[in-house]
């Protein structure tokens, strides 16, 4: 019987996990810091945030997805979080059918970093924060490219890292690391056409694959051999390179002058 493999999450799993293993959690600390407290109080006047805690020294605020523009606008204009240093999404489709989107903000005047998080359903779209932070232009394009999350009112929502005619969204957990069929034949289809798939052959993706007899693709191990040489032939040992070269002196180590490395 073929072993069952889950299709909704093809991420590599550990081959062994102890039955009674319970993963420890990083504690979600309450907000004690004065600066963060003031920011939260200020934010509470504008937006109704769900939860706020400190994780490893950075404030995490969980909000509703439709409040994202209002929250970031408030944090930028009132609290001094002027830089959107990072944003992207996490795929929780297999567990909850949702994406988690995070915005990592930096206040340079206060040396504080905040992470604003919200969740959206698979087919929902999120409002663009590009009018507030120009850097979101590219981050949101990357998020669309990698996860297929639609962004409303984005000036130029196109793929950014993958080619325009790519199939699938690579960072989703359903997308295999080695790519789906369209990905594996992408360059052959594009350059030569589908009819050349048989001639060129499938990709060799086994990292441990070594063929000692295959001289068409690689020289024999430890030896240089001519292309497509007979696998049983004696390997050609090359010691001198320019013995057959015209007007060229052969290198002699004894005559060479070795320069001191530290001048």
């Amino acid at each position: 019987m073929r072993p069952y493999k889950p299709k909704d999450n093809v991420q590599k799993k550990s081959y062994y996990t102890d039955r009674f293993w319970v993963a420890p959690r990083i504690p979600e600390e309450s907000v004690e810091d004065e600066v963060y407290k003031a920011d939260l109080e200020s934010l509470a006047k504008a937006v109704n945030y769900k939860k706020a805690y400190i994780m490893r020294g950075q404030l995490v605020i969980i909000i509703d997805a439709k409040d994202n523009v209002a929250t970031l606008k408030h944090l930028k204009e009132e609290c001094g979080y002027e830089v959107l240093s990072e944003m992207s999404a996490i795929d929780y489709l297999a567990q909850d059918g949702e994406f988690e989107i995070f915005y990592q903000l930096l206040a340079m005047s206060k040396r504080r970093r905040i992470r604003v998080k919200c969740r959206i359903k698979e087919n929902e779209a999120i409002e663009s924060v590009e009018p507030i932070f120009r850097s979101a232009d590219w981050s949101e394009r990357e998020m669309y490219d990698m996860f297929g999350i639609k962004v409303n009112n984005h000036p130029n929502l196109k793929r950014i890292l993958m080619p325009e005619d790519w199939v699938g969204y690579p960072l989703r957990k359903t997308y295999p690391l080695h790519g789906d069929e369209a990905a594996q034949w992408y360059e052959v289809d594009k350059i030569f056409g589908k009819e050349y798939r048989d001639i060129i052959g499938p990709e060799q993706r086994d990292p441990a694959y070594v063929s000692t007899t295959d001289t068409c693709n690689f020289a024999r191990i430890h030896h240089e051999v001519p292309r497509c040489a007979d696998p049983n032939s004696e390997p050609e040992k090359i010691e001198v390179f320019n013995d057959d070269a015209l007007l060229t002196e052969t290198f002699d180590l004894k005559k060479a002058k070795i320069v001191d490395r530290n001048r």
């Binding site: 690391l177 080695h178 993706r205």
Partner: peptide, 9 residues
């Protein structure tokens, strides 16, 4: 880079 985006050779 044994991934979806790299030409394998």
């Amino acid at each position: 880079f044994n991934t979806y985006a790299t030409v394998q050779g």
